[in-house]
């Protein structure tokens, strides 16, 4: 049991930090610009494919730096030449733009790299079990992922709290109109935030593409869960995104090991449920089967009872 808890903790930490790398950019972009960027996970996918391509040319380590920068640059271009001209037509136009962008990126990836998964292996130097935890190996790559995402978290925190641009971004998070009125070059800040958010997604892609699978469907599979994270954490709250990422990853990971169904729950109180009829599956289904769905349930409940999220300050 101790073994299971320790392992699940470690696994949920790795997955949670990866989620945070994605959701931090999304929540910054949303709170600053009001744009719910549907193409955010596509930048994550681009990061994975760029990382894959560059690592076949010059190796993994240069790719780790170059790919996120490329994705960030691409994000900045998208903001400068796409979103900025749409800004005056309101949020719906921007939203539709990002939805279109999602499909364009997906089809481009299909065209360039094909429809099947590409082979993007763990770099040799990280491909060993780093230590044994109660009989099971912990791979070095997982620890490396944790390290990178922790580093990114600390870096982001320092930029936002210790630099001038960070202070402007922070101010724009809660009082976007006020910052504008103070005469800061808000469009440039927007571009920076969009580019930076995309670069973070790209970085998540470079390391996540190895950890998961680099394939054209990867944006579509990870996209929804990132939205869940920022809704649960509270739109625009970085701390919220951090807590929600870890929480949701933990919910998913721990639920897998819990083999109790509603029948067992009622049995605790001495009720015997007769699992027959139309709803019999609902009584029988074990929590472990529903693990990956739980975050969505969590989001619905959160929206019903606390629409601003765990740490959100704004109601809308």
């Amino acid at each position: 049991m101790l073994e299971y808890v320790l392992f699940s903790l470690l696994n949920s930490l790795v997955l949670g930090m990866l989620l945070f790398m994605l959701s931090s950019g999304l929540t910054l972009i949303f709170s600053m610009m009001g744009v719910l960027n549907f193409a955010h996970a596509s930048f994550y996918m681009l990061g994975a494919y760029f990382g894959y391509q560059i690592s076949t040319w010059v190796g993994f380590w240069p790719a780790l730096v170059i790919a996120p920068l490329l994705v960030g640059g691409l994000g900045a271009l998208v903001e400068r030449y796409g979103l900025r001209s749409l800004h005056k037509y309101g949020h719906v136009a921007e939203l539709l733009f990002t939805v279109g962008l999602f499909y364009i990126i997906e089809e481009s990836v299909n065209l360039i790299w094909g429809r099947n998964a590409v082979m993007y292996p763990i770099p040799k130097i990280l491909d060993f079990p780093v230590f044994k935890l109660l009989g099971a190996d912990v791979s070095a790559y997982r620890m490396f992922m944790l390290l990178i995402s922790m580093g990114m978290f600390v870096g982001l925190y320092l930029v936002l709290t210790r630099t001038r641009i960070g202070l402007i971004i922070q101010a724009a998070l809660t009082h976007p109109e006020g910052v504008n009125a103070l005469g800061h070059n808000v469009p440039a800040v927007f571009m920076l935030v969009f580019g930076g958010g995309s670069a973070l997604a790209g970085l998540a892609g470079v390391i996540g593409g190895i950890f998961l699978i680099t394939e054209p469907a990867m944006a579509a599979t990870l996209g929804p869960i990132v939205f869940v994270v920022i809704v649960v954490g509270g739109m625009g709250s970085l701390t919220g995104a951090f807590v929600a990422s870890l929480l949701l990853a933990a919910i998913q990971t721990f639920a897998v090991g819990i083999e109790y169904s509603l029948t067992d729950l009622f049995a605790l109180f001495g009720w015997r449920v007769d699992a027959t009829g139309f709803f019999r599956d609902i009584w029988r289904i074990q929590l472990s089967h529903t693990g990956p769905i739980l975050p969505y349930l969590f989001m619905v409940l959160m929206l019903m009872f606390r629409p601003k999220g765990l740490m959100g300050k704004r109601e809308s």
């Binding site: 392992f7 997955l15 950890f211 990870l222 990971t253 897998v256 089967h289 529903t290 693990g291 769905i293």
Partner: peptide, 21 residues
């Protein structure tokens, strides 16, 4: 005897821990 939702699981390590145990 584990069932996972179709195409929803990102990290299978918790399942692997179960298999290991």
């Amino acid at each position: 005897d584990t069932f996972t939702p179709l195409g929803k699981v990102k990290d299978f390590s918790p399942y692997v821990s179960k298999i290991q145990a």
